[in-house]
């Protein structure tokens, strides 16, 4: 995955190619939902969690999952097949969002500057998935480790997200939280 742009502050910020994303909307008690997600290589996440693996599944809302997969088109078709006859929506939204990674010891602090979220390790462990805002735009955040954080937001506001993350992670802006 090649970086689209980078900023070198007290964390390393990169906008990365977003990869494939599939939106799956279905009531949580839909018959065969877990099997359908497994059928495209994912694992149904718990509430407010993102599953790990080559195909990641993020819990967006009680009736909404976001599947991060290299093969979005194939997964969309397969979900439609596996859930045929049951009320659902599987949609390839790969072009909808931009994705950022932050690396460094202080990624929690950088995100805490912009999001009204308790970024303490106990409240936001790796694997927790939180839709919130980054400054003035909607975004979703998760950590895949103590020093790696990820953020997604709508592509239309990607410039704002990058500039804002770059600004709050500039050298000299360290606070010393967490």
């Amino acid at each position: 995955m090649s970086d689209l742009r980078r900023a070198h502050g007290y964390v390393e910020l990169a906008e990365v190619a977003p990869g494939g994303m599939v939106l799956l909307r279905a009531a949580p008690d839909t018959d065969g939902l877990a099997e359908a997600v497994a059928g495209v290589g994912g694992e149904l996440p718990g509430r407010l969690r993102i599953s790990s693996g080559d195909v990641q599944v993020a819990w967006m809302a009680p009736d909404e999952l976001l599947i991060l997969t290299p093969d979005a088109h194939g997964a969309t078709v397969e979900l439609g097949r596996l859930l045929e006859g049951r009320h659902h929506l599987a949609l390839d939204v790969s072009d909808l969002r931009a994705r950022f990674t932050l690396r460094g010891a202080r990624v929690r602090e950088v995100l805490a500057k912009l999001a009204p979220v308790d970024m303490a390790p106990a409240a936001m462990p790796p694997g927790a998935f939180r839709r919130t805002r980054l400054a003035q735009i909607p975004a979703a955040l998760w950590l895949s480790g103590e020093t790696t954080a990820h953020a997604i937001c709508f592509r239309s506001v990607a410039d704002y997200a990058f500039a804002t993350l770059a600004t709050v992670s500039r050298e000299g802006g360290e606070i010393g939280l967490f």
């Binding site: 509430r47 407010l48 809302a61 009680p62 009204p116 939180r130 839709r131 919130t132 805002r133």
Partner: peptide, 12 residues
Amino acid sequence: PNCGVTADETEL
């Protein structure tokens, strides 16, 4: 009550 998050007013 939908997602269980205790959200700050600015998220609402």
